[in-house]
């Protein structure tokens, strides 16, 4: 690029980015390094952290609770993706059309998007109440003996999966709606001329054209599921037993209830490495970082 010096006078320097960058590095990036350091220490939150070498990490590899937490987190992540993606994709593509009912429906659709996970988890905790909740009523109708969904390990896990899906599907629906809106109608017209049916059109045009959206949504979904915390704390407190103690909750329990902040830092570091690796992998695999347009070659 050849730029005459005259033209450059109106340009800001990189210095304009410094305040924002420093602020971000101080509160988000530096803590990434500090948490790594803390994972090699013992710290109760009051005195100074004392260096204990790889003690925490040795303990981490042999900790059954941690192993189970990792397994639960991975299971929750995979099930979250399998549960939320088809629904959000279907709803998003549908909402991108021009139905008249859409405006009304979307107003209700997006309500869960506005509320905090605390508020929604509280609502669902009430609904799942074994004595007063909706499931008590349904169990009553069906003559079931137990309505204590949150009291059984599988039920509690399913409840976390469902409540988080209920909360986040609207967000992913919006992402897919935006993506689907940008697909040129001419592609569908051409396919229709070639005699492609609606199902073929979906798989031959809609899905490939939504590639970038699928990557964005999946990264958000996976990192989100690996870090679900609010919902678990309010809905199940990690229980019954350790049935819903996923990694972020284990970290909270270890760090801020047992005040074993050194070991909790090791758990957090493992979490950060996993989340970053997964999202980098997803981004690399799909070439998303190049910001390539799906419109190329049309």
């Amino acid at each position: 690029m050849t730029t005459a010096p005259r033209r450059r006078t109106g340009r800001p320097g990189i210095a304009w980015a410094v305040p924002g960058l420093l602020f971000f590095l101080f509160f988000a990036a530096a803590p990434m390094l500090i948490v790594g350091y803390l994972s090699f220490t013992q710290w109760d939150g009051l005195s100074n952290p004392s260096w204990t070498g790889t003690d925490n990490w040795d303990r981490l590899w042999n900790d059954d609770t941690m192993r189970q937490a990792i397994a639960l987190s991975l299971l929750l992540t995979v099930l979250t993706w399998l549960f939320q993606t088809p629904i959000a994709l279907l709803l998003g593509v549908w909402a991108a059309g021009r139905q008249r009912t859409r405006a009304l429906l979307s107003a209700i659709f997006f309500l869960p998007l506005l509320a905090s996970s605390v508020a929604l988890a509280l609502l669902w905790k009430t609904i799942f109440d074994p004595n007063l909740g909706l499931n008590a009523q349904i169990a009553d109708w069906l003559n079931l003996s137990s309505a204590d969904l949150l009291g059984s390990p599988r039920g509690a896990f399913a409840a976390v999966l469902f409540v988080t899906a209920w909360q986040f599907i609207p967000l992913h629906t919006l992402l897919y709606q935006g993506g689907a809106r940008q697909i040129p109608q001419s592609l569908y017209d051409a396919a229709a001329l070639d005699g492609a049916g609606t199902v073929r059109q979906f798989f031959a045009i809609t899905l490939p054209q939504l590639r970038n959206t699928i990557v964005t949504s999946s990264v958000l979904m996976v990192v989100g599921a690996l870090t679900y915390f609010d919902t678990v704390l309010i809905l199940t407190r990690g229980g019954p037993g350790d049935a819903t103690t996923i990694v972020p909750f284990l970290m909270y329990r270890t760090g801020f209830q047992a005040f074993d902040l050194g070991y909790a830092s090791a758990v957090a570091t493992a979490l950060v490495i996993t989340a970053t690796a997964v999202s980098l992998l997803l981004v690399r695999l799909t070439g998303f970082s190049k910001m390539r347009s799906t419109r190329e070659g049309i």
Binding site: F26, F27, A28, A29, A30, P31, M32, I34, V35, L38, G45, V219, V223, L226, T227, F229, P248, M251, Y252, G255, L261, A264, S265, A268, T269, L271, V272, A275, T276, S279, L280
Partner: peptide
């Protein structure tokens, strides 16, 4: 974008 706040809450507490 990929940094989860849960993962760095301990150092933020320290800071």
């Amino acid at each position: 974008l990929a940094i989860p706040s849960q993962a760095v809450i301990i150092p933020i507490y320290l800071i």
